[in-house]
Design a protein around this nucleic acid. Sequence first.
DNA 1: AAATCAATAGACAGATCTGTCTATTCCAGA
DNA 2: TCTGGAATAGACAGATCTGTCTATTGATTT
Lengths: 190, 190
Amino acid sequence: MSSKRQDLIEAALCLFNERGYHATGIDAILARAGVAKNTLYKHFRSKDELILAALRLKDEQQRNEIMRRVESRARSPQDRLLAVFDVVEDWFRDPDFHGCLFIRASGEFADTDDPVHRVCLEHSHLLRGYLERLARSAGASDPEGLSKQLLILLTGSMVAAQIRGDAAPAQVAKQAASTLIQSQCTPSGG
Amino acid sequence: MSSKRQDLIEAALCLFNERGYHATGIDAILARAGVAKNTLYKHFRSKDELILAALRLKDEQQRNEIMRRVESRARSPQDRLLAVFDVVEDWFRDPDFHGCLFIRASGEFADTDDPVHRVCLEHSHLLRGYLERLARSAGASDPEGLSKQLLILLTGSMVAAQIRGDAAPAQVAKQAASTLIQSQCTPSGG
DNA sequence: AAATCAATAGACAGATCTGTCTATTCCAGA
DNA sequence: TCTGGAATAGACAGATCTGTCTATTGATTT
């Protein structure tokens, strides 16, 4: 079927991760995908449309993989909130990790009205929604507030790992998350 | 004196903030600075050298301004640790805020060996050092650990504000920071 | 076998990018 | 007044970028 479209998106995601969005030319994507230029512009109207399609696919893939891994790693909602940080630690350990594609995209497409930027915001919302559901199941007194805090920790750990080039920030964030969860999920906590 | 050099750096920082690094051409910087191309290449060997010089200057300016504002806003070390988040909240409120220039640079120059990336790492180290000194003065049981947690919160709030386009993440992070500080700076805390 | 359709290679236009170069202007100091 | 240094405008080379176009191949279906 339309495997060419898929090949293009995969090649694009790989190169965007390696070099960034503006620094990656169409020709490099074509070469890596083994696809002709004409074919690209039959599937996508422009480079920006390709970026959008690639990020929309990645959004779903990435969230699904995180949720799947979290659920197989821990049983209780509280443990699962913490397991999120173990899951991203594995991700940070990958030699190909150069930071979250959505965080980096929102930095390169800085205008909040830009469609690319909006996809990043949507990704962030969906991820927070997952954390909020876990927080609610865990019996947090303020699930929405806790999920916002945990999302900031998660985001911060991604950037710290991106800058440092190692996975250590995951456990630092996990420790902080543990403290925050404790303060909401125990009878003594506010 | 060499005000041209300064003009170039200021124009570059402004445009990098608006559009990003790769998306900003030399000509746009020259036009905004009101400087001829020849002059740019007399002061800097390449665009990358200009980026480096701009970020090195910004590193000092930004940290100094944060520290100055924090110190004028709160007296005790504990209050100052929290005041950091009020200070960045003002920053997030600026209509020109499009995210931290160092976080965005580390995303566009993803190779950790890249000199630009290294400047970002250095900036992050220096900022953490400041937080660690405050944490130590505040009597934290593990100042280094607390400073790492707070840096992740700070970083995360910057990215969240960048993506959302509002300042709300600052107070979310401040609330989390408060919980983390409490757990280290009270007799009952671990 | 004929027709259809997707994909190919690659030329091309037009814009933009970095960096070099020339020729000129302007100003400060001897 | 002369000189030297720094800045100017702007042409230029050479690369690269996005996007369009033509002409061809190849596989599948009718």
